[in-house]
Structure formats: C-alpha cells, structure tokens
C-alpha cells in the first residue's frame, strides 16, 4: 500500500507540473499530465487484487549496496570537478566495489588501482579525453 501511495504521488507530481504550463507550448504537457494522472488513478484503483502478489522477500533491503553505488557516482562528480579524472576514477570503482558484501577492502583496492591504470591508458593517453587528470576545480 505504501508502494501504491508512492506511485500515486509520482503521478500527481507530474500532473501539477503539467497544468502550470502556458497554453501554447504547454498544450502537450497538459494533455500528457492529465493522461498520466488518470492512468495513475487507474493503477491505484486496479492494484488492490494484485497487492498479494508483491513478494517482500524478493526485494530484500540492500542499503549498503544502494548507498555505495549512489555515493560512488556522487563522489565521481564531485572529485571530477575538484580533483580530476584520476582520483574520481579511483573513488568510483573503490566505493562501488565496497557495496558488494563479498568484496574485501583489498579486493576493492586492487580493482580500483587496475581500473585507474586502464583509465589513464585508454581515456587519457589513447582517446585524449578532455578531462584533466588532476585539477583544483
């Protein structure tokens, strides 16, 4: 039921954004918004009989994995801006590898170092990507 409430909220958000638009270029957004709102209502209305089929066990909570993957991407953006390609690469691989429970710190470190080497060789040296290896932002 929480699940359904969330779905409805997503739809409702989209709806109000659509209705705020000016009529000219806003015509399409409004039509889409209304349709999305209607479909959202229909989903909520028809979802009850299916609620029992939602299998809780299938979606165990993986906060560590989710947190590490998201964090690693955010850190990539931050370090990419204020550190450069090299630290950003190292961190994205290292942090996301830690998200998997079977990886030890040593595994993650080895993997991150290997990827950083590959990154320098492929993207910096071979492809000449416009991304400084080190920068101060």
């Amino acid at each position: 039921m929480i699940v359904l409430g969330l779905a409805a909220a997503v739809q409702g958000r989209a709806y109000s954004f659509g209705a705020l638009q000016r009529p000219g270029p806003g015509f399409f957004p409004v039509v889409l918004g209304v349709l999305l709102g209607l479909v959202g209502v229909a989903i909520v209305a028809t979802a009850q009989p299916m609620a029992s089929s939602i299998d809780e066990g299938r979606y165990s909570r993986e906060w560590r994995g989710w947190g590490c993957i998201t964090l690693s991407l955010v850190l990539f953006v931050l370090l990419g801006k204020y550190g450069g390609l090299l630290p950003a690469t190292f961190v994205i691989v290292f942090v996301s590898a830690l998200g998997d429970r079977r990886n030890t710190v040593k595994d993650a470190l080895t993997l991150a170092l290997a990827m950083t080497t590959i990154c320098v060789l492929v993207f910096w040296w071979a492809l000449k990507l416009q991304f400084p290896l080190f920068t101060r932002g």
């Binding site: 690693s72 691989v93 595994d107």
Partner: peptide
C-alpha cells in the same frame, strides 16, 4: 562483484 564497479566507471 568485480564487474559492476568497472561498468559503473
């Protein structure tokens, strides 16, 4: 566990 961090990069 080794593959997805690399793919993410």
């Amino acid at each position: 566990r080794f593959m997805f961090p690399c793919a993410l990069f």
